[in-house]
Simulated scan of single mutants.
Amino acid sequence: MKIPKRIQPLVEEGLVDAVVRQLMSGKEATVYVVRCGDDIRCAKVYKEAAQRSFRQAASYQEGRKVRNSRQARAMEKGTRYGRKMQEEVWQNAEVDALYRLAAAGVRVPRPHICFEGVLLMDLVTDARGEVAPRLNDVELTEALALTYHACLLRQVVLMLCAGVIHGDLSEYNILVDADGPVIIDLPQAIDAAGNSEAGPMLERDAANLASYFSRFAPQLADTQYGKEIWALYGAGLLTPETVLSGRVATDDRPADVGAVMREIALARKEEEERLRREQDMREANAVSWSYR
């Protein structure tokens, strides 16, 4: 097929030899099957901000780093340079996440390079060598649903142990290759330690998995894997080998209202004493200045 304009620079640099066909067009990017020497890969061409239906909510951008304060100020002001930097940060988020996750053993496409807004990575294929289907297009039995759900929970745990949360995980951004589920589409991935919304996003990812797989395995509907995983992570107890139960113990003990009120009263008293000391100090200083 005719080489798309955005992929032409990769052809000129010798990174891509030919474009085989368009694979899909989504809310964030258009993906093409390309030939690179003897290898068949995919090229993800990111759409410009004005063309994307997925907006960069502040909750996803929190904690993402830029090179220097000048870039940060430009992004805050929304200048043309700042918008360019926002695009660069948004695209690099997926590239960085893919490299981190691949190194941690997470089942994601192996990235090769991101050049001029085009991400070149491995093409995920099924047992016949065809393009792998999305999870929502795969027929599932109860047993297979339970197997895939357990596999994906392990991937979520591996991701979190590597400091990454997908943030938009669902049956639509999971492919199924010859060995099972592969997680894709990570431009909205967030840093678990640097984002105040990390916990709710992790829980939402896990809830999305439970909601989908419970169609085939109803026993998953009432599980609480997201809360369990996040609680273990917060306590420093989460490892790739952690065995999950899907249950979170609740504290049913009645709240000690009296103790809470005593703490409030103590804090108020300490604040009053601090203010009184500051006032005494100001008065003492005033007297001292009057004798000079």
Rank of each mutant, 00 (worst) to 15 (best):
K2C: 05
I7P: 02
E12P: 01
D17M: 11
V20F: 13
V20H: 15
Q22C: 04
L23G: 11
M24G: 05
M24E: 10
T30H: 01
R35G: 11
R41Y: 05
R41G: 00
C42D: 00
V45T: 14
A49T: 08
F54D: 05
Q56L: 11
Q56P: 01
N68G: 09
T79A: 10
R80Y: 12
K84R: 13
E87F: 01
V89C: 03
E94S: 01
D96P: 02
L98Y: 06
R100E: 09
A102L: 15
R110N: 14
H112F: 14
H112Y: 15
G117M: 00
L119V: 10
D122P: 04
V124Y: 15
R128K: 07
A132G: 13
P133M: 05
R134P: 00
D137S: 08
L140D: 07
T141Q: 06
A145L: 08
T147M: 07
Y148R: 03
A150K: 12
A150G: 09
A150C: 02
L153K: 01
R154Q: 05
Q155F: 06
L160D: 03
G163W: 10
L169I: 15
E171G: 06
Y172P: 00
L175P: 00
D177Q: 14
V182F: 08
D185E: 04
L186N: 00
P187G: 03
D191T: 14
G194R: 04
S196H: 06
E197G: 15
P200W: 04
M201Y: 03
R204M: 11
A206L: 14
R215Y: 13
A217L: 07
Y225A: 02
Y225W: 07
G226Q: 01
A231R: 13
Y233I: 07
A235T: 07
G236D: 09
L237F: 02
L238I: 09
T239Q: 13
R247S: 10
V248H: 11
P254Q: 08
V257T: 08
G258Y: 06
I264Y: 13
I264Q: 12
L266P: 03
E270F: 06
E272Q: 05
L275K: 10
R277N: 04
Q279F: 09
N285D: 06
A286G: 09
S290M: 05
S290D: 15
Y291A: 04
